[in-house]
Every structure is written in C-alpha cells, then in structure tokens.
Design a protein around this nucleic acid. Structure first.
Length: 797
RNA sequence: GCCUGCGUGGUGAAAUUGGUAUACACGCUUGACUCAAAAUCAAGUGACAUUUUGUCAUAUCGGUUCAAGUCCGAUCGCAGGCACCA
C-alpha cells in the first residue's frame, strides 16, 4: 500500500499555499456557485454521511474549475441552537467555548478529507460579525410589518422549555428531543410567512429542484381551493362562517361543528344552556392534545351546543351546532359545515351521535359509509341532475356570490413562522420595549445586540428566556425617548442564521452591509445546492421565504435564491441509522487513518445511487482501496510510446465520466474508471498519456493520489491547474459492432459487422448464421426487423 | 387513510431510456507464488439440464409490441413524507 498519509498531507498543504480553491468576486470568468449545507458542529464530530455529500459536491466543484469556471464552494458553521446549548450545559462550559471546540474538530476532519472549500470565506452563524446582519435583517422584516408579536396558542416543548414553529413540531413531536409537544398560550414573535404561501408555490417553477423536493414543499404549503359560506344563527344577528372545499354538498349539511376555542361560544354564552358542559369539554380538549395525537384510532368526541341553531342558507332548514375537537381553530375559520353522507369524519360523528344523514350525490350506499365518489346530484335544488363535480361547484359558487352568502376562497396550511425561542443560545431579537413608545428597534449603529457573558444560561421553569433573569442586560434606555425600557429576551430560532448564509458567503467579511451589491450581482444564485431531505419543509422553505422578502424590498437581485437542489441518501449500517446507542457508528477519522481519504471518498462515491440510502460495507471500502493500489502500481509499467493504447475506450471513458459527474451518477463514473484500469492491466505496458487520462478523470473523486502520481511520473502540470479532458464523439465508436441476431425475440447468434452496413447486408448476414438457420429452417419468415448498429430480429411462424 | 418513491444474483448495484438482463465491485470456489499466512496474480461464479447447446429467470398476474427490468392495468411487499386540513 502506498503512503497515503504523507501524500494526502503534502497535497493539502500545496492547495492551501497556492490558494488553489480561492474564489475571487468579479473575476472575468463565468461563475459557478456550488453549495453544500453547512453542518451543525455537534460534539459527535463528522459523520460518514457528511463525507458523502461533501465529496460529491467537491467532485462537481473540482470538475467545474477544470472546465474554466470561477467556482465558489464555501463552508461555514450553523452553530446556534439547542444541541450546542445542551452540550454546553452538560459539560459545564459556555456554549461559545463548546462551539469553538467543536468547530475545530469538524474543520480538522473536513480538511483531512481534502475537500476543496474556500476556507477564506468561513464563518459561523454565532459570530457577532455575522449575527449582527441576521438581526439587521430581522429589523427589516419588522419595519415592513412582516414581524409581529402575538399572544396565541403555540407548540410548546416541555422538555426543551421553549416554543416551536409548526415546522419544528411536525406530527406533534419536538424535532430536537422527540418529546410530545403541548399547546401553550404565549406571546411570540412571528414572521408573516403565510403571506408568501402562493409565491412560494409559484416560485418553484423558476427552480430546478428535484421533483420530490418540490412536492414536499407543495404538500407542506397545503393549498386548497373552496368557499367560505355564512350560516346565520337563528334568532341572533350573528353568523358562523365555514370553509369548505365541497360547496356542491351544501344541501346535505345536517349539522355544524366548531372548534372548542371558537370565539362564538364566548360571544353567545348567554343564550347557551349547557355552558358548564361546554367549558368542561374545552378544558379536556386543551390537555388532550398532549397525548391524544399519538393515538392511532381517535374516536370522535363532541358536545351539542344547546340553545343555538344555525340556518342552512340554501333550504333555510334549522341545523344543530356541535363543539368538536376534530375541528381545528388554526385552519380555515375554525368552523365546518358537516355533510355526513359524503365525508368520512362527519359520517363517523353523525353515526355516533345519531344525527340525520342526507344523501345528495347518488352512487354509494350511505347506510354503510360516507360516499366520496361522483354521481348525479339528488335532493339538491339547483344542482339536481348534474353529474360533474366541477360544474356543480362552479354553479354553487355563482349562486353563493349572487345571494351574498358566500364566496370562493383559497386556503393554505402554511402558517406564520413562530420566530421566538425561550433559549439563551440564539440571536437576541433586537427590539426594546418602552412603556411610552411601545416596541422600538435597536438602532443600526448599536447592532449587534450581543449575548451577555454569564455563568447561568439554563432554561427557566416558568417558560421565560434565560435572558430575562439577567437584569443588567434586560434594563436599558429607550432609543426614542431616553426613558427606562426593557430588552426583548426571546432569541431567534436556529433556522434564522441558515436562512441567508448562502448570501453572506458572497461577501463574508463586509462590515458595512450584509452583502455588497457587487457581490450579489456577480454570484447571483446558488447554482447547485445539496442538502438533506429533512430540510425540505424547513430550512429550504425558510430560506426561500427570507430571500423572496429581501427581493421584494429590493435587497437581492433574484426572487429565487437556488437553481438546482439535490438531496443525498443516508448512509446506514445494517439497514439502520447509525447511532451511538446502537454502537454502529463508523467514524470517518478511523477510515482516513487506516485507508486514506481518497479510498473513503472513492468508496462513498461508488456505494450506490447518490440520492438513495446506502449501507456501509467495510469490504466494499477495501475494494476501492485496492483499486487505488492498482493504479499506484500501474505507474511502474509505462512505455515510451505516445498517444492512447486503446483510443476508443479512452474517449468512451472521458464521455462517460464527464456526463456522470454532471448528473451525479458517481457510482458509474467510478466503475467506468475501473473498466479502463482493467483494460490497462491486460496490456504488457501503457503509455504516459494512458496513465495521465486515467488519473485526470479520477482526480475530482480522489484528488491526492492522482496529483501525486502525476507529479512523480512527470506527466504534466498539476491536475487541479489543467483543463478537463475533452472527448471526440467520433472516436467513441468502433468501426465494427457485434450485431445481435434474434429469432422471435430470442438471441440466436451474433456477427461482427461494420457500423455503416446496410440493412440489406445486416439481414443477409443474419440469415446466413448457422445457428440462426436451425431456428428458421422449415418455418415461414413473416417479418424481419433491422435496427442499424444494433440488431436484427427475424419473426417466423 | 392520502401522497411520493422503490422491488433485478449470496451482497452493493448496472442496463445506451423499448433493443444482448446481471456491467463494475464485494463475497465465495479452485489454482499459482510461499515453509506458512497475508498481500498479489490467474480461472470460475443467476438457476436448471442431456453443458460448444438449450430452457427458465428482473416481486406476482395480465396487457401493448417484432422486441418489456423499462410502457399500461391489477395485486402483494418495503421505505419515506403528510395526516381529524373540512
């Protein structure tokens, strides 16, 4: 085995000294911006999963540089947030120190891999020089009315003792600690992300995201089209407005259901006869959400509101009103019209409480279940006899609008972004509350609002931020009137810093602006962005929202910040996620020490389809290590000839590797190079050109060993400074090809034929083949299909 | 329940986008070298059989086609996402 330790160190030093990977803003070259999600520098160190995506994008970056682009391939640290804080609490050090230590470890590990990052642009989201601008941008949101404080029921994690966004509490589970989330009423800062719901869907068409990523975002935004309809409450001037996607079933409404938190209950409490019972149900609903959510079968519950009745605006019939927790206050209007005949949930509820069921679409059997299919409308006044759902809905919408009882309405599941965290380790929200002036932004010249250096930063029991206990930090003077005021003590979520870091990389040391216009105009969009699928509904959505806002207020030149988005699959061990508790974690350091960075990189590229999960196999790694050893050895078998020994195969390989690296098919790129090496090993010796082309094509994946061979064999300029090889399409095809001869679709023989052979000649040659004759003899030839450069199929009977 | 993928040797996986199924690699078997082992090299390796040849085989069943791993329909299984969203 070659001395990879020495070689890898040597070339890493060479790149660093020569600043080979430094991106220069404004260079008269076409730019290319390659980005891989910056890591959270956890105490656990680098994971083999990081190695996979970093190597993949490194290969792209290295190839693009050789293709003559000015490549920006930066790296930094996303270091605010709960894990760093908890790590620090556990180890009794300040999170600042913990982060510093972890970054040091991560950086060393990444540098040992020889990834071609431009380290001159490195920063951490926790650097005051960086979070100054995160705070500055928050104030832009605030000044444009896009940030507001509101008291509302939010997701609260009792373990982390902080509020969470909907995205961080998906499925009712805290994303950090997996605790069940409870509802808690709290004053919170929010960003008006729901205003951008439509733009976030429309904008996707200006991106080249992988389909599964686009779909994930569209699903999360959850657009639905329907109608809002007003139902009068009998004997009052009040009305209940419902949202429905099926206004065509209005004649089938037999009751209404409202969320337990619905304000109408308070407004009309004097008319309600069973208020005590309802109050009790409301209390139950509040505590229930805690554990009820995880139960698989949720039986419908509810309480009838005695004393109130609604009027169906179409047939004027009086219908019951129920309070039921299957209606959510946070979606639509918090009230629904229930059509048990044609909705599963309403059906279940009506059956349980003995409520009337009216069929309005025929075709099903409503004595058994709700019918959700299509069919002719019945019992439906103006809609009777229609059969098309679309037509019925549009007819009904017209009717509702003419009679001013409803209108078309689009709803989104996407909600405003809860932006407050009751934690220490985050960017302080730069606002000051003054008794006289209300909320006042911290003036720009006073930014950043620094986190205080204190001993105690653990979360408090009462749900306040730890910052609230630090009197000397909280108390301040109002920037407006000079009177006494208090700072906001909530901090930002850890997704704040990562929502714009890709912009900062363009101009990371600017202390006058968040990024210069010059840098924004030159670097434009991220051309190729890689990250985990788990960030589809969070980081990627937040980043697009943030950028669209900056675009709308004229701060960035592109509405969409990212062109191509791809996602890597995970690396598993024995089909399971690697984890400390299972003891199946592969540490990249150990592999680099034993086999070298190039072997690890090559193996992770060879492991399988980049977008799919893959299982770690140490034997597979050894195979790739062996491949590199064989290349190392073949350099001792050079002859004095020039040119390529097998020119066609070389051109085929250049073509294959180039196309595969462009389309992230790393596994087949490596296999093409293995095939080339296998061919070289069959020759008594090879030319210098043969060797140079092999290592050049392998260089983006295994950069150290290839540079070393190039250097010691004197094959030419360093590979990282040489243009990427080009192939000649004409030289990728042989003069002759192996023509396949089929009889009735089955292979019966093969003949070598010139690629320009006529169809007639191919047919004659096929029919003359001895084995083919055996299958044709005595039978009638019905048809002969001839595909040039491929095959002949003889159809007989 | 809904949406999105996926199902190919003992294993990880290829397949020019409808045209030779199993490239490349791992593992295994045999041989060479060696006192021996490791490493390395060579040969073999989908199943079955009457073994220079043929039959069957890409989850299962059916369809389209001269030709299907690839397209269409149904079924089964696995993974991921969303989930009382009206």
């Amino acid at each position: 085995m070659y001395d990879f330790k020495k070689i890898e160190k040597k070339w890493q030093n060479y790149w660093e000294e020569k600043e080979t990977f430094k991106a220069i803003t404004g260079l008269d070259k076409e730019k290319y911006y390659v980005l891989v999600e910056f890591p959270y520098p956890s105490g656990a160190g680098l994971h083999v999963g990081h190695v996979r995506s970093y190597t993949a994008l490194d290969a792209v970056a290295r190839m693009k540089r050789m293709n003559g682009y000015n490549v920006l391939f930066p790296m930094g640290w996303d270091a605010f947030g709960a894990p760093a804080e908890q790590y620090a609490i556990k180890n009794h050090i300040h999170p600042k120190e913990a982060v510093k230590e972890n970054i040091k470890t991560f950086k060393k590990q990444i540098m040992d891999l020889g990834i071609s990052f431009d380290w001159s642009r490195e920063f951490s989201t926790t650097d005051p020089e960086y979070y100054k601008w995160t705070q500055w941008q928050f104030l832009e949101f605030y000044k444009h009315g896009m940030a507001y404080k509101d008291k509302k029921n939010i997701n609260w994690c009792p373990t982390c003792k902080t509020g969470l966004s909907n995205e961080d509490a998906a499925g009712g589970i805290c994303d950090r600690c997996k605790s069940k989330v409870v509802q808690k009423e709290k004053e919170q800062w929010l960003l008006r992300m729901s205003d951008y719901a439509e733009d976030l869907i429309v904008g996707l068409k200006d991106t080249k995201f992988a389909d599964r990523v686009k779909l994930g975002q569209i699903n999360w935004i959850g657009k639905s089209t329907g109608a809002e309809v007003d139902f009068k409450i009998a004997g009052t001037k009040k009305k209940l407005t419902v949202y429905t996607t099926r206004p065509d079933t209005l004649y089938g409404v037999t009751f209404m259901a409202i969320a337990p938190e619905h304000p109408i209950l308070e407004e009309l409490k004097d008319r309600i006869k069973n208020m005590d019972e309802i109050k009790k149900y409301q209390e139950e609903a509040k505590t229930k959400s805690e554990f009820e959510r995880t139960e698989l079968v949720k039986e419908k519950t509810g309480v009838k509101v005695e004393g109130l009745e609604a009027i169906n605006p179409l047939n004027k019939e009086k219908i019951q009103i129920w309070v039921a927790d299957y209606v959510m206050m946070g979606y639509g209007t918090g009230a629904i019209m229930a059509v048990p005949a044609h909705d599963n949930r309403d059906y279940e509820f009506a059956k349980k409480f003995g409520i009337n069921i009216i069929e309005v679409i025929s075709g099903g059997d409503i004595s058994k279940e709700a019918y959700i299919g299509d069919g002719p409308y019945i019992n439906s006044g103006i809609l009777n006899k229609l059969t098309s759902k679309e037509e019925a809905i549009s007819r009904m919408l017209d009717f509702l609008e003419e009679n001013k009882i409803g209108h078309a309405k689009t709803n989104y599941r996407l909600q405003d972004w809860i932006f407050s965290r009751q934690r220490f380790w985050g960017e302080p929200i730069p606002l000051i509350h003054c008794e006289k002036c209300g909320w006042v932004p911290v003036p720009e010249e006073d930014l950043p609002v620094l986190l205080p250096d204190v001993a105690n930063y653990e979360p408090t029991e009462d749900g306040e931020s730890p910052l609230a206990n630090i009197e000397e930090w909280v108390n301040c003077t109002c920037p407006k009137c000079g009177g006494h005021a208090r700072r906001e003590t909530d901090t930002m979520p850890n997704w704040a810093g990562s929502s714009w870091y890709f912009l900062r990389y363009m101009d990371p040391h600017n202390d006058k602006e968040f990024v210069s216009k010059e840098a924004l105009d030159y670097w434009g969009k991220v051309d190729w962005y890689n990250g985990g699928m788990e960030h589809t509904a969070r980081h990627l959505l937040y980043a697009r929202f943030w950028n669209q806002f900056l675009y709308n207020i004229g701060l960035v030149p592109n509405k969409e910040p990212i062109d191509v988005r791809v996602s890597h699959g995970m690396i598993l061990a024995g089909g399971e996620k690697m984890s400390k508790s299972k003891g199946n974690v592969i540490n990249p350091d150990d592999i680099v020490n034993e086999y070298g960075a190039d072997a690890l990189r090559t193996y992770e590229m060879f492991i399988g389809d980049y977008e799919k999960d893959a299982s770690w196999s140490t034997n597979g790694l050894k195979g790739c290590s062996k491949f590199l050893d064989r290349i190392w050895r073949i350099k001792d078998n050079l002859n004095d000839k020039e040119g390529y020994t097998n020119e066609i195969l070389v051109h085929q390989t250049i073509k294959k590797v180039t196309n595969d690296l462009d389309s992230m098919k790393y596994n087949t790129a490596v296999s093409a190079l293995m095939i080339l090496l296998n061919e070289y090993e069959k020759c008594p010796n090879i030319t210098r050109d043969d060797l140079r082309i092999l290592i050049h094509l392998l260089n983006p994946i295994a950069p150290h060993i290839t540079e070393e061979i190039n250097d010691i064999c004197n094959l030419g300029a360093p590979l990282c400074e040489s243009p990427w090889p080009v192939y000649d399409e004409k030289k990728t095809v042989n003069e002759n090809f192996e023509m396949v001869i089929q009889v009735n679709g089955k292979v019966r023989g093969k003949e070598v034929v010139n690629i320009n052979a006529s169809k007639e000649f191919m047919q004659e040659t096929a029919l003359a083949n001895e084995n083919v004759k055996k299958f044709v003899r005595g039978k009638k030839i019905i048809n002969v299909v001839v595909i040039p450069r491929r095959l002949v199929n003889i159809v007989v009977r």
